[in-house]
Design a protein around this nucleic acid. Sequence first.
DNA 1: GACTGTGAAGTAGTTCACAGCT
DNA 2: AGCTGTGAACTACTTCACAGTC
Lengths: 216, 216
Amino acid sequence: MDRTPRRIPAATVARLPEYLRVLVGLASDRIATVSSDRLAELAGVNGAKVRKDLSYLGTYGTRGVGYDVDFLLFQMREALGLTQDWPVVVVGAGNLGRALANYGGFGERGFPVAAIVDSDPAKVGTEIGGTIVRPVADLAGIVAEHHHVIGVIATPGHVAQAVADALVVAGVQAILNFAPALVSVPPHISLRKVDLALELQVLSFYQSHRETRAVG
Amino acid sequence: MDRTPRRIPAATVARLPEYLRVLVGLASDRIATVSSDRLAELAGVNGAKVRKDLSYLGTYGTRGVGYDVDFLLFQMREALGLTQDWPVVVVGAGNLGRALANYGGFGERGFPVAAIVDSDPAKVGTEIGGTIVRPVADLAGIVAEHHHVIGVIATPGHVAQAVADALVVAGVQAILNFAPALVSVPPHISLRKVDLALELQVLSFYQSHRETRAVG
DNA sequence: GACTGTGAAGTAGTTCACAGCT
DNA sequence: AGCTGTGAACTACTTCACAGTC
């Protein structure tokens, strides 16, 4: 009865989506319970880490038995805030933006593409993956139409900061930046970045140094 | 004169591509020297971290002056192994694979798309971003045609392990996995993963918990 | 007997703060 | 005076190891 809401370490938060993926698989295989060691094996980590991570969620398994898959799945979705959808607005209808909008993986995982916007009038009105490209001026309207929209920056690096500023003005609270550029936002806005080439560069480093550094 | 080749921490390696990006920008602006604090500001970190990171490379700046941009740029490319190109073979010509192959950002940064392969005969022979899709059976040939090819897995999760195995058999030494699945490889193979939806899930977590956790 | 939950120990990464060079 | 390079202090994260529960 001690749902201690301890502060969850960032490293743990980053692993929760992995556990979620594993649990979805177990549930669809009709597996009822799972031990920390088995979950760890499927997620590519170790049992102690799983137990400590889950303990931060206030999730209790059963000693001698393990964790109830359905209950843990529910709790994981709850913890990650995935009991609701988070519509995404993609800014930039170039290669990367089209790619992300066409890639079905976002919608499947609770992040439907609500809109795509682009500053190029030639692109406005074209269709990408069933969504019509809208002008950047529509941003505020798009944010107002939906609840808690996440902004995705898929533009060249040199306009990334301007796009981020526009997203913030439009009322977006969370931004995912795919552009290879540093972006800064007011402290109350959540910001994360993904650099598609960065991991290739890291691989290049380890190949050049003839050391293997495996990462799940 | 003490080019100590200390082991470079993984956290430092992950930041080198950021420094590289900043240095490329400074060099194109014809800026000759940069201090650790300025470099830190442009990379979104702090000065002490920059100095410590650069010290692992055995890179020496000049006290009272800073770092020579061109020299540091050269060293950074050298450290990352980017004095050569690393051709990439994309496995999977679905939405994600087409996206990655069309996305010019890889080629620009030294990772040209050498080939795209797919197991679907209907896709083989079609063109994506100037490259003809080849059958999976061509993998070994593609690896032999080029030096040090990096394999990129852009398939659905349920075939990711089989693709990884095929890449290893074909002689690939480094793999970047975009599929949302755990993949394991022999210890001498470098493996990294990128999960496009994971960062959205992390944003969802922080939004739900109404805490802002900014990340450069 | 099996397996969780967690303090304690160990390891990695960050930041401080300042000596030392230009 | 300005700025690097780095031990030392600190903080975050991981792993161990075992008491507690089923």
